[in-house]
C-alpha cells in the first residue's frame, strides 16, 4: 500500500484555448481545454496541468472561465500556472476550480511570495516550477550543483543554483516542485535523471519530472531517479504514447500506478 506514481499530461493554454499542437483525430475541437481534459481523464490521467494560461491581466477572465468549465466536468486535481504573481491571483484561480497553483518567475523575483502563498492557502496547493539548465561551475560559480534556474522559457539565466533554490522553496512552504530540464525539453531524449536525483537528495517534498519524455523507458528512469510524478506534453498530445502505456510500463518495473477502466 503506497501512493501511486502520478502520470500528468500538461497543456499549454492561452486565452482559454489550448495552444501548441494537439493531434487527436476524434476531438471535435482540439483547442478546447475542457474536451482535452475529459479525454485525458478518461485515459487515466492522475492530474492535469495547465501552463502559461496567460502572461497579461487582459485575458485572465477567459482563463478563469476555462478552469471553471474544466472543473465542472473533470473530477481529478487541476494545477494551473503561468503569470501567477500575487496571492489574489492564486485566490481567483482556486475559486475558479484549480486545486494547485504553479509559481515560477514571481518566486524567483520575490522568494517571500512562496511563504505568503503557503501561509494563506496551505502548502498543498503551492507548486514551485523550476526551469533549470546545466551550467559549468567555472562559468557560473554561483551554481555549484551545475544546475541553474532560468526564466523566460529557459532563455534567461538567473545565476541561482537550482538545488539551493529547491531547498529554499521547501523551507518557504512550497508543497511540491515541478522540475523542468530546459536542456531536455523538446528533445524526446529522456528526463534529466541526474538533476532529478540531485533534487531528490535535497528536498522531502514531492517532485514532478518534466522535459524530455520521448519513449516509455524514460518514465521508469525518472521514477528511479526520485520523481514522484511524471509530466509530459507532446508525446501525449500527438498520440505517440498513451497514459495507459506509460502506466503499464511503470507497473512492469514494479512502481505502483492507479489503474482505471480505460475505454477501448
Amino acid at each position: 500500500m503506497t501512493v501511486a506514481v502520478r502520470v500528468i499530461p500538461c497543456l499549454d493554454v492561452s486565452e482559454g484555448r489550448v495552444v501548441k499542437g494537439v493531434n487527436f483525430v476524434d476531438l471535435r475541437d482540439a483547442g478546447d481545454p475542457v474536451e482535452l481534459a475529459r479525454r485525458y481523464d478518461a485515459e487515466g490521467a492522475d492530474e492535469l496541468t495547465f501552463l502559461d494560461i496567460t502572461a497579461t491581466s487582459d485575458n485572465r477572465a477567459s482563463a478563469y472561465e476555462m478552469i471553471r468549465r474544466t472543473a465542472e466536468q473533470v473530477f481529478i486535481p487541476l494545477t494551473v500556472g503561468g503569470g501567477v504573481r500575487t496571492t489574489d491571483d492564486i485566490n481567483a484561480l482556486l475559486r475558479a476550480g484549480a486545486d494547485k497553483v504553479s509559481i515560477n518567475s514571481a518566486a524567483v523575483a520575490r522568494p517571500e511570495f512562496l511563504s505568503e502563498a503557503a501561509d494563506r492557502f496551505g502548502s498543498q496547493c503551492v507548486v514551485l516550477a523550476i526551469d533549470a539548465r546545466r551550467v559549468s561551475v567555472d562559468h557560473e560559480p554561483a551554481c555549484p550543483s551545475g544546475f541553474e534556474v532560468t526564466t523566460h522559457g529557459g532563455r534567461k539565466g538567473t545565476g541561482i543554483d537550482a538545488v539551493a533554490w529547491a531547498r529554499q522553496a521547501e523551507q518557504a512552504g512550497a508543497g511540491e516542485i515541478l522540475l523542468t530540464s530546459m536542456d531536455s525539453d523538446g528533445t524526446k531524449d529522456g528526463f534529466d535523471t541526474a538533476m532529478l536525483a540531485e533534487l531528490r537528495r535535497t528536498v522531502g517534498i514531492p517532485l514532478i519530472a518534466s522535459g524530455g519524455a520521448g519513449t516509455l523507458e524514460h518514465f521508469p528512469a525518472a521514477v528511479a531517479a526520485g520523481a514522484d510524478a511524471v509530466l509530459a506534453a507532446s508525446v501525449f498530445h500527438f498520440g505517440e504514447l498513451s497514459i495507459d502505456q506509460v502506466k503499464q510500463r511503470l507497473a512492469q518495473d514494479g512502481y505502483p500506478v492507479r489503474r482505471t477502466a480505460v475505454p477501448a
Binding site: A4, P206, D228
Partner: peptide
C-alpha cells in the same frame, strides 16, 4: 514519512 505532503492516489484498508 520521507516525502511530505502525502500527495497523490493511494489505496485504503
Amino acid at each position: 514519512a520521507p516525502i511530505v505532503p502525502h500527495m497523490g492516489w493511494n489505496t485504503v484498508q
